[in-house]
């Protein structure tokens, strides 16, 4: 993608979440605003046949992977036009045929699953890779250690991407994790590991591309830590615990403003172009909402479908 397309994708996610958060009929949502650069930069480094897995914070990963915004909105609003008929919601949305193997809302729960997907790809001699996005909160889990160990031993085609937004619900990352950098967690296993600024979409894309080249060459897994921001509280139903002064700093690190600034400085973004982009993405989101609202909820009999 060119940089304008990356910008547009990030703006779509921001606009999508903004519209969704204004509603009251979605239960609650886990927003990705502030971390759009991670998902968008990462997905730009992937091929169609690759599989992306993520945590319950699934809006940016799913939209960045190219899922239809209307279908995603329908899933989040519990409508049958969602890829999972509204049964998965934010926590478990999946569309494997589109390269989005899916979210899993158990923190750290998708790490070994993603390694299993990588094992299946390796066993079939596929050139595709498995990619798992998880938060800093998952880095304290034993599942990460177990997965890193086996993935390194078996040289699995697996890219682990830590979207380190530096806070897990209300616990600051430095209170929960002893490692200086989260990419250090991969080092003892001999896994290629990089830490980048997750608010720089280009840097995320380029680092992911480098790691993925090695993975596809059969050199085993990679680990990419992206230091991002969480612009809102943990979920739309959770109170914010950070101070106004802290939030000032958080908001100053906006991936969209960062890329916009670069493009303006280089003269790539003409005056008025931003307004036009904003208008386009807002309209796309309105269409997504209209599509979702036109779709019904599942019939209550579906509570028993696809169980056994």
């Amino acid at each position: 993608m060119d940089r304008l397309a990356l910008l547009r994708r990030m703006m779509l996610i921001r606009s999508f979440e903004s519209a969704l958060a204004k509603r009251r009929d979605h239960g609650f949502q886990l927003l990705s605003s502030g971390a759009e650069g991670v998902a968008v930069g990462l997905c730009d480094a992937l091929r169609n046949e690759d599989q992306l897995l993520c945590s319950g914070r699934s809006i940016a990963p799913s939209l960045a992977r190219g899922l239809d915004p209307g279908a995603v909105m329908a899933e989040l609003l519990g409508r049958i036009a969602g890829p999972n008929r509204g049964k998965a919601g934010r926590g478990h949305m999946a569309q494997p045929a589109a390269g989005f193997f899916g979210a899993h809302a158990v923190v750290g729960g998708n790490l070994a699953i993603a390694a299993g997907v990588a094992l299946a790809l390796q066993q079939r001699r596929s050139t595709a890779i498995s990619v798992c996005v998880f938060g800093d909160g998952a880095c304290g889990s034993g599942a990460l250690h177990e997965t890193l160990n086996i993935a390194a031993l078996w040289k699995l085609p697996l890219l682990l991407v830590c979207d380190n937004n530096q806070i897990a619900i209300a616990t600051p990352r430095e209170q929960a994790l002893a490692a200086a950098r989260l990419s250090d967690l991969a080092a003892p296993f001999g896994i290629a590991a990089v830490t980048v600024d997750g608010t720089d979409v280009i840097s995320v894309r380029d680092s992911a591309t480098g790691l993925i080249a090695n993975i596809r060459a059969g050199q085993g897994p990679g680990f990419l830590e992206c230091i991002s921001e969480r612009f809102f509280s943990h979920s739309t139903a959770t109170r914010e615990t950070r101070s106004a002064a802290e939030m000032e700093v958080v908001w100053s690190r906006c991936p969209i403003l960062r890329l916009t600034g670069q493009l303006r400085a280089e003269g790539v973004l003409a005056s008025g172009a931003m307004e036009e982009l904003q208008h386009d993405t807002d309209r796309q989101v309105l269409h997504a909402i209209a599509f979702a609202e036109a779709s019904p909820f599942p019939n209550s009999a579906e509570a028993l479908s696809h169980v056994d």
């Binding site: 699953i113 390694a115 990588a118 094992l119 498995s130 177990e146 086996i150 031993l153």
Partner: peptide
């Protein structure tokens, strides 16, 4: 060794890998 794999002592990852591989076609 490709189809009969010894694993480390890591039950969470063993079952997790198995489940992920099953979900992906094995």
């Amino acid at each position: 060794p490709d189809r009969v794999r010894d694993t480390p002592v890591a039950e969470a990852a063993m079952v997790g890998l198995g489940v992920g591989a099953a979900a992906a076609g094995l």
